[in-house]
Design a binder for these strands. Sequence first.
DNA 1: TTTCTTTTGCAACCAGGTTGCAGAAGCGTA
DNA 2: TACGCTTCTGCAACCTGGTTGCAAAAGAAA
Lengths: 142, 142
Amino acid sequence: MKQDNILEIFSDLGIRATTPRILIYEYIKLQSDTFSLGDIENALPDTDKSTIFRTLILFEEHHLIHSMEDGSGAMKYCLCRNQGECEEEEFHCHFYCEKCKKTYCLDNQASTNITLPKGFIMNHINFIIKGICDKCSHKTDI
Amino acid sequence: MKQDNILEIFSDLGIRATTPRILIYEYIKLQSDTFSLGDIENALPDTDKSTIFRTLILFEEHHLIHSMEDGSGAMKYCLCRNQGECEEEEFHCHFYCEKCKKTYCLDNQASTNITLPKGFIMNHINFIIKGICDKCSHKTDI
DNA sequence: TTTCTTTTGCAACCAGGTTGCAGAAGCGTA
DNA sequence: TACGCTTCTGCAACCTGGTTGCAAAAGAAA
Ligand SMILES: [Mn+2]
Ligand SMILES: [Mn+2]
Ligand SMILES: [Zn+2]
Ligand SMILES: [Zn+2]
């Protein structure tokens, strides 16, 4: 595991390696932070939106990517750093910059200590911190 | 402050007390957890969606309510327990039940310890825990 | 090749949110 | 009470992102 070859990653997971899937995965691998379906649409104008949509669902089912709601209106995704072998604890937090609209993965910068009320069962976490990112906070405003 | 009379709450904040605003605020006061624009639409079929929409914006600007994205597709709102005087620290967490689709306010059940990377400035938090609520977890499945 | 299964592209649809605008309502003043 | 100005409402239209049904294309198997 921890493959680098796309074809092997797909075949390990039993995913058929089609042209759109390879293009989409190649795009995803280049992203250091999060991306949306619309970002992929722009990057791959010859691939249909619905194909991208279904591919993202497929990738998420196989834990190749994670998804999150950052309040921007569009679902955001990020590459799973553990290629389908992420553990339950990988509930990492994200930062949404209200100025440049970029969403960053914060891997270990935020710790949470959760005690749920009796009877509540946690499956996922969607933890978004909103504010101004480092690049935008350095700029002088006006 | 900590008023109970709707008309006084509005006049304290300089909000004109119109019929739709009173109806909407009365609805909101009855809710123990979160609600959406669509919930209000259903409860008040004679009030237009855009009026409800603009009223929610107004209420949030005056900190009468908080809003959050719970991933359900619809923005959720909850009554501010401090009537417009909530402090920055009131970043409470919410729980979304994936079975009954209800979103609960978790006031003190989850603590977070956040250390952002250098240069990042936090303004808000959108912290949603997803899973199964107590009512739904007690039910025998099938 | 033929046949069967999976995947794709297109077009249409949907939900929730958002906007421009004309008329209604509210309010201060005469 | 009537007038003039400002704010608010309802309606209809629009927008964006997401979702679906379906026929054609591509892939795998025989
Ligand atoms: Mn992961
Ligand atoms: Mn509050
Ligand atoms: Zn930024
Ligand atoms: Zn539930």
